[in-house]
Design a protein around this nucleic acid. Structure first.
Length: 412
RNA sequence: GCGGGAGUAGCUCAGUUGGUUAGAGCGCCAGAUUGUGGAUCUGGAUGUCGGGGGUUCAAAUCCCCUCUCUCGCCCCA
């Protein structure tokens, strides 16, 4: 019992917080299901290579953020830092290539060893969507529309903007990378960006360093390096988004961190969460499945942080108002239990307190925001009846036990 | 991993230049009201002052270490 505190960067979730989470998840699932996505649940841990091989050797996730350990059988295991790699692994090991196109939706905890901040924890929850097996931009339009609609139905469309960029295909991306390095290599970049120049030069584009920003302002644009095919792809995507009614802004400097992205990259961002502005982000990952050892399969997807969404959302907090059963005296206990169970089976939300005299029970019923109380005293039981009290109006009436359901119907 | 700020009751916070039994509001519990909640009144309990070490006759207060949260960087959801 060294410490009764939760591990750094982890939190218990209860009360209002978990209601918000549930609301986010339920809204997301409802929308995803309307888009034809079905749920997948993959393990929270995988062999380390599943993540190490796919996320890229230079990504921060792999170099410093993974929870990795050796299990008792000597296997190298990693707690999943994100969802896509696990879904891709499931796609390959489950032989799901037979069922393309595949539209999958998931939710669950992710783990990253990072310094915690608001909206950033070591264990956090994501919802995510993946669409596998469609090479054309219609897939991108659909997956982005899905994200946009979920945010909209959460009431967040006013607080969030969709930023969009194209990284192009591998050829375009490599060409651009070369041009960018050529331009940047002699510039007086910040120390961090000097480092990035070797590891991940595209990152320099969204550096927050004043000095870098000035330099980047005149840097060659990614859009000028797109080959014809990549350009056409991006044009079709933008056209599709307009037809689908999804608003977006172009951000030619937006870069996604994971190596496997190509073509579309998008982020829904907000200014309401400080440094953690991204609320939903994703992109296309055509090379991923092949890179993992499956047959080449295009894919696109996104993930969204439930904690971050929950902080922005204000709905979903309504709790069903219970009917509270109030027995008076020991003789009423059996009847109270019987009535409680009967009403619960009949579809009512019912609370039966565990102790206390009538005044105390009424107080608790009130604190629980009861819509009605059912009072069972000696008198009532003698007449095989109960007193039903409307907790809003204060009106009460005695009703026969057999007729309780009908009298309580409006509280159902 | 790097740099700043903070930590006192369940919550929000006060606490003087180091000085006795550490306070307020809200909430909680009990009573006024043992068959009637919300309102009011009365009373009550809160606590390793984040933890450890040091200075001192004396530390919530000063110093060092550490943990956690927070803001920014890195990066991301």
């Amino acid at each position: 019992m060294a410490s009764l505190k939760p591990v750094r960067g982890t939190h218990d979730l209860l009360g209002e917080d978990i209601l918000r989470h549930r609301h986010v998840e339920q809204t997301a699932f409802a929308v995803a299901s309307r888009y034809g996505y079905s749920e997948i649940s993959t393990p929270v841990f995988e062999f380390t290579e599943v993540f190490a091989r796919t996320l890229g050797d230079t990504s921060d996730i792999v170099t410093k953020e993974m929870y990795t350990f050796e299990d008792k059988g000597g296997e190298r295991i990693t707690l999943r830092p994100e969802g896509t790699a696990g879904v891709a692994r499931a796609f390959i090991s489950g032989g799901l290539a037979q069922k393309l196109p595949l539209k999958l939706f998931y939710r669950g905890p992710m783990f990253r060893y990072e310094r915690p901040q608001k909206g950033r924890q070591r264990q956090f929850n994501q919802i995510g969507a993946e669409l596998l097996g469609v090479a054309g931009p219609l897939a991108d339009v659909e997956i982005i529309s899905l994200g946009a609609q979920i945010l909209d139905e959460l009431g967040l469309s006013e607080h969030v903007v969709c930023e969009l960029n194209s990284l192009g295909d591998a050829e375009s991306r490599n060409a651009y990378r070369a041009r960018l390095v050529e331009y940047l290599k002699d510039q007086p970049l910040s120390e961090d960006s000097r480092e990035r120049l070797h590891r991940n030069p595209l990152r320099i584009l969204d550096s927050k360093e004043e000095r870098d920003r000035a330099i980047v302002a005149d840097a060659p644009l990614m859009s000028d390096s797109l080959n014809d095919e990549s350009r056409r792809f991006f044009d079709d995507l933008r056209n599709g988004l307009e037809i689908a009614g999804v608003k977006y802004t172009l951000n030619p400097r937006m870069v996604r961190g994971l190596d496997y992205y190509c073509h579309s990259a998008f982020e829904f961002t907000t200014t309401a969460l400080g440094a953690q502005g991204t609320v939903l982000g994703g992109g296309r990952y055509d090379g991923l499945v092949k890179q993992m050892g499956g047959q080449a399969t295009p894919g696109i997807g996104w993930a969204a942080g439930i904690e971050r969404l929950a902080m922005l959302v204000d709905g979903g907090l309504e709790k069903k108002r219970p009917i509270v059963i109030i027995p008076i005296g020991a003789e009423a206990a059996d009847t109270a239990l019987e009535v409680t169970q009967r009403l619960r089976r009949g579809g009512f939300s019912v609370d039966l307190g565990f102790s206390g005299n009538m005044g105390k029970r009424m107080k608790r019923a009130n604190a629980a925001n009861a819509c009605a109380t059912v009072i069972l005293g000696e008198d009532e039981i003698a007449r095989q009846a109960a007193t039903v009290r409307d907790m809003d109006s204060g009106e009460q009436a005695e009703v026969p036990l057999t007729a309780l359901e009908t009298h309580l119907d409006r509280f159902r």
